[in-house]
């Protein structure tokens, strides 16, 4: 197996060199295997989303080395697709135009685009929404379109920034199952950011737990549960307990810090 994402001693300081400088990440070492599902878990503001943006190539690391399949990460690349929490579909484009936006940047005919859109939208179960506009869809459907848009780029790495955080609990559970199907089918590795312990246990091959301010890796917890997973299995319960314990330490620390500031 090759390494789809590799981070060596990665650090990020926002607004470095100014009085507002703020250290978001420090000394992050992480290797993601090809096809692996890795969840980044941590309290809000711990820099886990920052790491995702660095891997996406949208931001530059202040220190350390990052690479994807042996190539050093300097710019965004279509094979590393990012999916956001909030709707990021373009409201002025129809669903199929959104899905193939990335392809339209090159020289591909509309006919071909529509074929590819039909294919990926079928995969996410939204073939019927081809000609709809984003505002006509529900939150869950919009996120499925966002996933379809990422899939249309045939990514090797899917980067997801709390993609289901804005959805209600039932929809969220459905979307997790849906994502696992997509992941198995696409054979891409996934880096998934969440602050939801249940979500981490339901999805991950490995859970990377972050400390807060600056974000460092506190512990990497392997999840060796068979899929499909039973959320009520005793092993899952134990894992949740363990994650809750280490996470609450960090939350306590963050609270203490905030109180000291106040």
């Amino acid at each position: 197996m090759s390494t789809s994402v590799s981070c060596k001693n990665v650090g990020k300081i926002w607004a470095a060199g100014t009085p507002r400088a703020h250290e978001a990440l420090r000394g992050v070492d992480l290797e993601v295997e090809d096809g692996e599902f890795v969840v980044l878990l941590g309290p809000s503001g711990c820099g886990k989303s920052t790491l995702l943006y660095l891997v996406a190539g949208l931001e530059e690391a202040t220190s350390g080395e990052m690479s994807s399949f042996g190539q050093s990460i300097t710019d965004p690349a279509p094979d590393r697709s990012l999916i956001f929490q909030e709707t990021s579909l373009f409201p002025w484009l129809s669903v199929w135009q959104n899905v193939t936006f990335g392809l339209s940047l090159g020289s591909i005919s509309d006919k071909e685009r529509k074929e590819i859109a039909t294919e990926v939208l079928t995969k996410v179960g939204l073939r019927a929404a081809l000609d709809k506009r984003p505002h006509e869809l529900s939150g869950g459907m919009r996120q499925r379109v966002a996933v379809a848009r990422a899939l249309a780029m045939e990514p090797k790495v899917l980067l997801m920034d709390e993609p289901f955080a804005a959805l209600d609990v039932q929809t969220r559970a459905k979307m997790q199952d849906f994502l696992l199907d997509v992941w198995r089918d696409a054979k891409a590795s996934v880096l998934f950011v969440t602050h939801h312990i249940d979500e981490a246990v339901a999805l991950a091959d490995r859970v990377v737990v972050f400390t807060s301010r600056p974000g460092t890796i506190k512990e990497i917890v392997p999840v060796n549960l068979p899929r499909p997973r039973d959320p009520f299995a005793p092993e899952a319960q134990d894992l949740r307990k363990h994650l809750t314990a280490i996470l609450s330490e960090e939350v306590d620390k963050a609270f203490a810090e905030q109180e000291a500031l106040a």
């Binding site: 996406a56 279509p78 697709s81 709707t87 990021s88 373009f90 940047l105």
Partner: peptide, 13 residues
């Protein structure tokens, strides 16, 4: 919305 711009950037715009 910065997300719009980031989406376009990750797709190589």
């Amino acid at each position: 919305n910065q997300n719009y711009i980031n989406v376009a950037r990750t797709m190589g715009a």
